[in-house]
């Protein structure tokens, strides 16, 4: 529906990877998980990364999420090369520019809905009343305005994933990284979640999503298919 906008050259590049490689040493063997991947993500992109297991899509997502460092290549996020930053700087990058949505929600069970949404702000050192207000607003946005003080265990899977989505938005990230966001949900709930992501994307959010389900990937405007650590396909679904 928005192929034209994807092609539009006006939108700025939020993230770019150039010839990204990642090797793992397993005993005496070196596993080449990524063998030179170059991609560009623009503001408002909704990209699905697909591929069989072992194709390197998880590795790519970890690198995009600044949870890991590439063996070589460059990763430019928000205008700076983050590929060789140290652990502290990477933590700060994650805190400022990235939002995460996981397959298994990854909420902290001891904390309430609002507190879970608040975590990224805490690590930015923002515990102002305005921050709290923002968390409450986001909870309402994802439809959990009446469950602010519930624990994750008191929520359904779909509701937990909504909390996770609200949490991924709270720091106003440049890029939202979603790892199989519907993997643990039944198809109806999965569709609801995808509807929410669609809405966020329409509102201008950049979303990079790893999935192996074609019908989920169909929500994206662009599909990157990986095979053996290389890009096999990059284009429309």
């Amino acid at each position: 529906m928005s192929d034209t906008t994807v092609a539009s050259p006006v939108r700025r590049v939020v993230a770019r990877i150039v010839d990204l490689r990642k090797d793992y040493v397993l005993g005496k063997n070196v596993v080449h998980a990524l063998r030179g991947v170059s991609l560009e993500f623009r503001q408002g992109d909704f990209v699905a990364i697909m591929g069989a297991s072992g194709s390197g899509k998880s590795t790519l997502l970890n690198l995009l999420g600044c949870l890991d460092k590439p063996t070589s290549g460059r990763y430019i996020l928000a205008g700076q090369d983050v590929s060789q930053l140290d652990d502290y700087a990477l933590s700060k990058i994650r805190s400022r520019y990235l939002g995460f949505i996981f397959q298994s929600y990854n909420l902290i069970p001891q904390l309430s809905v609002v507190e879970n949404i608040q975590i990224p702000l805490q690590y930015q050192g923002d515990d102002s009343p305005a921050a709290l207000q923002r968390c409450v607003r986001l909870a309402k946005l994802v439809g959990l305005g009446d469950r602010l003080d519930h624990r994750p265990t008191e929520l359904s899977g779909g509701q937990q994933q909504r909390v996770a989505i609200a949490r991924s938005l709270v720091n106003n990230p440049h890029v939202i990284l979603a790892d199989e966001p519907t993997g643990n949900l039944d198809s109806a709930t999965g569709e609801e979640i995808m509807g929410l992501l669609d809405a966020l994307n329409r509102a201008g959010r950049t979303i990079i999503m790893v999935t192996h389900e074609a019908d989920i990937a169909a929500h994206a405007h662009r599909v990157v298919r990986l095979r053996d650590g290389r890009i096999e396909h990059d284009g429309t679904p």
Partner: peptide, 16 residues
């Protein structure tokens, strides 16, 4: 462990 992983992903530094 998992909580630590979550917090790290959400921007907690080692110091945090």
């Amino acid at each position: 462990t998992r909580e630590i992983g979550i917090r790290r992903a959400l921007g907690a530094t080692q110091g945090d």
